[in-house]
Nucleic acid binder design. Structure first.
Length: 499
RNA sequence: CGGGAUGUGGCUCAGCUUGGUAGAGCGCUGUGUUCGGAACGCAGAGGUCGCAGGUUCAAAUCCUGUCAUCCCGACCA
């Protein structure tokens, strides 16, 4: 068994709490490579569950999976001006294809004779290689739409990294679609946005705001960007997914045209959309507590842990037997179950161990319970313990999965509501973002200009997280005056300090 | 890329001022007693003190250089 020391509380040091929790809950570890993390089996199992749910949604909406290269020729990158601007500063570049012994000392050096004619970029995102390919595939409106997703790793060379939230390499899915019309691409980007919302809320139990990014925050090269935004327990926003309507920008850059039914040559409309392992960070920050991780049952790699007790062989035979029996019954209900039979650990140590790892339900089976024909069930999210008749334990443990899934969502939703405020003056606005940590979601009027957005950001570190697609309150859609400039504003937008 | 700090068993750190046989807690291995919220005893394993030079009879300790990491700023899914 690994390290079982405690972690700081959220109140003591939220940032440290997160870092320690991610490691001690066995989600991830730092690696020998700067900025890159190792995703441990427990964390990866969580990611696999996320992938499965998302992949099913993509398939159900007509998408198929494919795979495009990790390396992208530098010249491809130079074709779309805004795209270059957005990503050039954080690209890893491959310049050689061979190493040789260093003639001037120990070790190896890139072989000067093996320099690539054209450098390759390690993909920070795949629009360019994909649109280069789509241009070959698309001739006619009959070839459209193309609805492809890929599960891949990407590299964005970040100055400062944080486990799951921002690392140089991360795992994600990126969908890339091609359409005959603007409206069809628009429908596509909104369809995916709805998948993301549904996944965040129904699977992760994380309530999200659904909205449009401002010009300043949109994807480099997009016509417009939609997003889902979650709130962490330290009251910061975290972007959990984005869906971009790319317009015809990439089609023009890669000369991707199709012949319409009327025989006219037209540029293709594009979308792209993605969610990453950052979702794991958002999940941790939304639900977990000072004892460790709290997982939503629908994504948990393990649903129930059973801790049998007993100091002598005879007692252990009894409790272990009952535990094994309960486990197989629970498995028959489709739950993943573990009986913790380690004999060097005390029951208390096992409770803490599994609580740190976020397992939704624990069943304690001790000799006193068996004498009374009961077992104790503890739920991870509230810590509540209940004594249940042995013949009702399985039904209750199954029932609790749904209850916990719903309760953690409701709790997170109540927290977000309690930390969403409307302000109308600059004094109120700055007061909301005063001090360390976040200030929750602040809903305020904005004059719609990038200049004002930048000035607000410079003054408060808060940025526009989104312009909600549906007003959070009916009055948010009423005109007003910008909180910063006093100029007319059509509607309120959501500000927050972001991860 | 600017400002600050730190590098000593797996982890957290002491030792450095004033040079003299490398330490503690946790974790790890074995073993016995334990077992209802982080059990205890006994016996063990494990460190070129970031790296390279220098001073010295002698360097974790003093000097120079270098590398790496962390924190604070500018950039970010």
């Amino acid at each position: 068994m690994s390290n079982n020391l405690g972690i700081p509380t959220r109140a003591e040091n939220y940032s440290e709490w997160y870092n320690e929790l991610v490691q001690k809950a066995d989600l991830a570890d730092y690696s020998a490579v700067r900025g890159c993390m190792v995703i441990k089996p427990h964390g990866y199992a969580l990611w696999e569950n996320m992938q499965r749910a998302l992949d099913d949604m993509f398939k159900a909406t007509g998408h198929v999976n494919a795979y495009f290269p990790l390396f992208i020729p530098k010249s491809f990158f130079e074709k779309e001006a805004e795209h270059v601007e957005g990503f050039a500063k954080e690209c890893a570049v491959v310049t050689h294809h061979r190493l040789k012994a260093n003639p001037d000392g120990p070790g190896l050096i890139p072989d000067p004779d093996a320099k690539l004619e054209e450098p390759l970029i390690v993909r920070p995102t795949s629009e360019t290689i994909i649109w280069n390919t789509y241009a070959k595939w698309i001739q006619s409106y009959r070839d459209l739409p193309i609805l492809i997703n890929q599960w891949a790793n990407v590299v964005r060379w970040e100055m400062r990294t944080r486990l799951f939230l921002r690392t140089a390499e991360f795992l994600w899915q990126e969908g890339h679609t091609a359409h005959a019309t603007y409206d069809e691409a628009e429908t596509e980007s909104l369809t995916i946005l709805e998948c993301y919302r549904k996944f965040a809320e129904d699977w992760m139990g994380v309530p999200v705001l659904v909205g449009l990014k401002s010009e300043g925050e949109k994807f480099a090269g997009a016509d417009h960007t939609y997003c889902i935004e979650a709130l962490t327990q330290d009251r910061r926003a975290i972007q959990a997914g984005t869906s971009h309507h790319l317009g015809q920008g990439f089609a023009k850059a890669f000369d991707c045209k199709f012949q319409s039914a009327e025989g006219k040559l037209e540029y293709v409309y594009a979308t792209s959309w993605g969610v990453s392992t950052r979702l794991i960070g958002a999940l941790v920050m939304a639900h977990s507590d000072d004892k460790g991780l709290i997982l939503p049952p629908k994504l948990a790699p393990l649903h129930v842990v059973i801790v049998p007790m007993g100091r002598d062989e005879e007692t252990r035979a009894r409790t272990f037997g009952v535990a094994d029996d309960l486990a197989s019954q629970l498995q028959a209900h489709g739950l993943k179950v573990k009986v913790d039979k380690r004999d060097k650990e005390s029951p208390g140590a096992k409770y803490n161990y599994w609580e740190m790892r976020g397992i939704p339900v624990r069943i304690e089976v001790g000799p006193r319970d068996l004498d009374a024909n009961v077992a104790v069930i503890a739920r991870r999210d509230t810590g509540d313990k209940e004594t249940v008749a042995l013949d009702s334990v399985v039904a209750r443990a199954v029932e609790l999965q749904g209850i916990i899934q719903s309760d953690i969502y409701q709790k997170a939703l109540a927290f977000r509501e309690a930390n969403t405020v409307r302000v109308d003056t600059w004094d109120e606005f700055t007061a909301a973002f005063d001090g360390d940590g976040g200030g929750g979601f602040v809903v305020a009027h904005w004059d719609g200009t990038t200049e004002t957005e930048d000035a607000i950001s410079a003054a408060t570190k808060a940025t526009i997280r989104c312009i909600p697609l549906v007003p959070l309150a009916p009055s948010d859609a009423e005109p007003g005056v910008c909180v910063f400039t006093g100029k007319p504003s059509a509607q309120r937008v959501v500000f927050a300090k972001a991860y």
